[in-house]
Simulated scan of single mutants.
Amino acid sequence: MSRLARRHAALLRDLPLPVPFDVHALCEQVAARRGRPIRLLPMSGLTGVCGLWIATDHTDLIFHESETTPPHREHIILHELAHVLCDHHPAAGQALLPGLDPAMVRRVLGRAGYSSAEEREAELLASLIRQRATADHTLTGRLRTALDGNGCG
């Protein structure tokens, strides 16, 4: 198993997914585990990016494109959350948001602000989280059906 696959397996193993899956509930769980809030902030017209992670001294801010479909919006949030989970660092944070006080912002990540390897890792982890959530939901549904069918419900 590759180093990246082992890293993702460990991250997924330690990541409790809400059932039924809800990306907002997942963000709350990750925030509680990290001991710092995660705020999801919809924005329209994010220039050149679909999502953006800004880590201040006390809060993680995840901006996401609001003018898109719900599944795409969820994937954008999962992608930015994957950057948080992987503890990625920006390549050029101040260039993305020049008006922000650099003393307030610890990290800024947007599609233009991290390496290709980090982009691929976040994209893969976001997809794996969604895949696991779908599998968990399917398994839960099958268990309910089996229990209901046997008069155990």
Rank of each mutant, 00 (worst) to 15 (best):
L15Q: 07
L15V: 07
P16E: 14
V19S: 13
P20H: 12
F21N: 06
F21C: 05
D22A: 10
V23E: 12
H24K: 09
A25R: 15
Q29N: 00
Q29T: 06
A31Q: 05
G35S: 01
R36E: 12
I38Y: 01
R39D: 06
L40T: 01
L40S: 03
S44R: 15
S44D: 15
G48N: 12
G48F: 07
V49C: 15
V49F: 05
G51E: 01
L52G: 00
W53F: 04
H58W: 07
E65H: 05
T68M: 09
T69Y: 00
T69M: 02
H72D: 14
R73G: 06
E74F: 00
E74S: 02
E80Y: 10
A82L: 11
H83G: 08
D87E: 15
P90W: 10
A92D: 12
G93T: 07
A95E: 14
L97N: 00
L97Q: 00
L97G: 00
P98W: 05
G99R: 11
G99P: 00
P102H: 08
M104L: 14
V105W: 10
A112R: 11
A112E: 06
S115P: 01
S115G: 14
E118D: 15
R120K: 13
R120E: 13
E121F: 11
E121L: 13
A122S: 14
E123R: 14
E123F: 05
A126P: 07
A126D: 06
S127M: 13
L128Q: 15
I129T: 05
R132L: 05
A133I: 08
